[in-house]
């Protein structure tokens, strides 16, 4: 497929979608959004690029293998849960540090979910596309 308009537009649109997905991820704690929804938007953005360009292009721009991203996200979820026990709370208890910014382990947990979903779905999507070619 060599569609100039689709190619050009999809680069801009998918870039916007990725920014929007991060926005949704970060605002999720107070407004509608969150890690899962953000991840779906990001994956759709990548999917658009995959159709307009090629799976190899997406792999190159991703820089990390999607499986690794998924596992890293899962590890981040686990680690954010292990902060609680360090302070004597049960596993996965939210620990907050609000001196400068409202930071807490739930944020890192949500980022973990975000990366795990992006990685897992992209793994399937890329493998599927490459398998069919």
């Amino acid at each position: 497929m060599n569609l100039l308009i689709l190619k050009t537009a999809s680069h801009m649109v998918s870039g916007l979608m990725l920014v929007f997905s991060v926005f949704l991820l970060l605002r999720g704690h107070h407004e509608a959004g969150g890690g899962f929804i953000g991840a779906l938007i990001a994956v759709i953005g990548f999917g658009l690029l995959m159709i307009a360009e090629s799976p190899a292009y997406v792999r190159r721009r991703l820089r990390f293998p999607p499986e690794a991203i998924a596992l890293f996200g899962l590890a981040l979820c686990l680690l954010s849960g292990l902060v609680g026990p360090l302070f004597g709370y049960p596993f996965l208890t939210g620990v907050w540090w609000k001196d400068i910014l409202p930071l807490g382990t739930p944020l890192f947990f949500d980022i973990g979910v975000y990366l795990a979903v992006i990685g897992a779905v992209l793994t399937i999507l890329l493998a599927l596309d490459e398998e069919l070619d």
Binding site: G28, H29, H30, E31, G33, G34, F36
Partner: peptide, 16 residues
């Protein structure tokens, strides 16, 4: 849980 979006708070905190 310091969050106003109950759905998200359930996902990442109450029922993490």
């Amino acid at each position: 849980a310091h969050g106003r979006n109950v759905v998200n708070v359930i996902l990442v905190d109450f029922r993490a």
